[in-house]
C-alpha cells in the first residue's frame, strides 16, 4: 500500500478524494447531530441556565438538586421506582407471554404464518395511535373494556383515573403494542435449534414443558439476552404511552410518573415544574444515560457468561 502511495501520487490522491467524498456527508451529519450534542450534554449539566443561555458554572449543583434536594429528589426517586416496576412487569407480562407464543408458533400448526403476522401487527403502529386507542377503550363509562366486563356483571374500575390501576393499564397497552417483537425474536432463536434435538427429546418421552424449560430455554439464551437488554433500555426511556394515556405530570397523583416524563417536564417546562431548566434537565439526562449504560454493560457481561455456561 505504502509503496503504491509514493509511486502513484496523482492516481492515489484522486482515489483518496473519492473516498473522502464518500465518507464526508455521513460523517458531517453524525458529527453535527450526534457527537457534538452528546459531548455538550455532559458540559451543559454543570451550568445554571437562564432560558436557553448557560449562565454560571455551578459544578455539581444540578446533580445535587435532582438527587438529594427536596422536592426534586422525591420526584426523581418516585419516577425511578416506576421505571423499575415497569421493567419487571414487562419482563413477566410481555416477554414471558411472548416466550409461550413463540413456542406455540414453533410447532408450525396450520395458520402459524398468519399468527406471526397478527401478533406483530401492533408493532408497526405509532405509540400515539396505540395510546389514544387504549385510552378510549379503557374509558370508565363509554369504553369497550368496561362494557365487556359489564356483560359479566362486573363493574370495571376507572382504569386510568385511579392510582391503583393507572400504571398497570398503561403497561398493559405497552404489552399489547410490543409483544410481537419479543415473540418473533425468540421464535427466530428457537428456529435455530436443530430439529433432531427436539425430535430426539420427544421420542424419549419428554413433554412440552420439559422441552421448553430444559432444552429450548438454554439454547435460546442469546435471544433472551437481547430481549432483556432491549426491554431494560425501553423501560428506562418509557415516555410516549404514559404521556398520551395519562399526562405530562404522571397523573393521577404522580402514580404514572417515569424518569423520561420528569426529565421532559424539567427541561421543557410544565404547569407544575414551572419554567424550563436545561441545567437540571441535562443532569437528569446524564444520570439516566450513566445508569442505563452501566446496567446494560454489567447485564451483558453477566448474561453472556450465562450463555456460555448453559
Amino acid at each position: 500500500m505504502k509503496a503504491d502511495w509514493r509511486s502513484k501520487p496523482f492516481h492515489l490522491s484522486r482515489r483518496s478524494l473519492w473516498i473522502a467524498f464518500l465518507l464526508a456527508p455521513a460523517a458531517v451529519i453524525m458529527m453535527t447531530f450526534v457527537v457534538w450534542p452528546l459531548v455538550s450534554a455532559l458540559q451543559l449539566s454543570f451550568f445554571r441556565f437562564e432560558g436557553l443561555k448557560p449562565g454560571d458554572f455551578v459544578w455539581f449543583e444540578n446533580f445535587y438538586k435532582v438527587l438529594f434536594q427536596s422536592p426534586f429528589r422525591d420526584a426523581t426517586y418516585n419516577a425511578f421506582w416506576h421505571n423499575i416496576v415497569v421493567f419487571f412487569a414487562l419482563m413477566v407480562l410481555e416477554n414471558g407471554v411472548a416466550l409461550l407464543i413463540a413456542y406455540a408458533l414453533l410447532k408450525e400448526l396450520p395458520g402459524h404464518r398468519l399468527h406471526q403476522v397478527i401478533v406483530f401487527l401492533p408493532v408497526v403502529l405509532s405509540a400515539v395511535i396505540v395510546g389514544f386507542l387504549w385510552k378510549l377503550l379503557l374509558h370508565p363509562l363509554f369504553g369497550v373494556v368496561n362494557a365487556a366486563l359489564g356483560l359479566f356483571g362486573i363493574m370495571g374500575p376507572a382504569w386510568l383515573g385511579s392510582e391503583a390501576t393507572a400504571l398497570g393499564s398503561i403497561v398493559f397497552a405497552n404489552v399489547w403494542h410490543w409483544i410481537g417483537f419479543p415473540a418473533l425474536v425468540l421464535l427466530a432463536g428457537m428456529q435455530r435449534i436443530s430439529r433432531e434435538v427436539l425430535e430426539a427429546a420427544r421420542l424419549d418421552g419428554a413433554g412440552d414443558w420439559t422441552i421448553l424449560t430444559r432444552i429450548v430455554w438454554p439454547l435460546i439464551a442469546p435471544s433472551v439476552t437481547i430481549v432483556t437488554v432491549l426491554t431494560f433500555i425501553g423501560s428506562f426511556n418509557w415516555f410516549e404511552l404514559p404521556l398520551l394515556m395519562a399526562d405530562m405530570e404522571g397523573s393521577p397523583g404522580r402514580s404514572t410518573d417515569v424518569l423520561a416524563l420528569y426529565f421532559y417536564r424539567t427541561a421543557f417546562g410544565s404547569v407544575t415544574s414551572g419554567i424550563q431548566d436545561f441545567g437540571q434537565g441535562s443532569a437528569l439526562a446524564v444520570l439516566m444515560f450513566l445508569f442505563v449504560g452501566a446496567v446494560t454493560f454489567i447485564a451483558l457481561k453477566f448474561l453472556r457468561s450465562r450463555e456460555l455456561e448453559i
Binding site: M30, V34, W36, S40, L44, I233, F278, G281, A285, F289
Partner: peptide, 28 residues
C-alpha cells in the same frame, strides 16, 4: 476506525441528548 465511529452511534440513545440537540438546531 471509521467503521467504529459510525457503529458507536448505534448504542447512543439520542433522546437523552435532546437538550443539546435542541440548542444545536436553534443555533443552526
Amino acid at each position: 476506525l471509521w467503521l467504529m465511529f459510525f457503529l458507536s452511534g448505534m448504542t447512543v440513545p439520542l433522546k437523552l441528548a435532546i437538550i443539546p440537540l435542541f440548542l444545536q438546531l436553534n443555533a443552526l
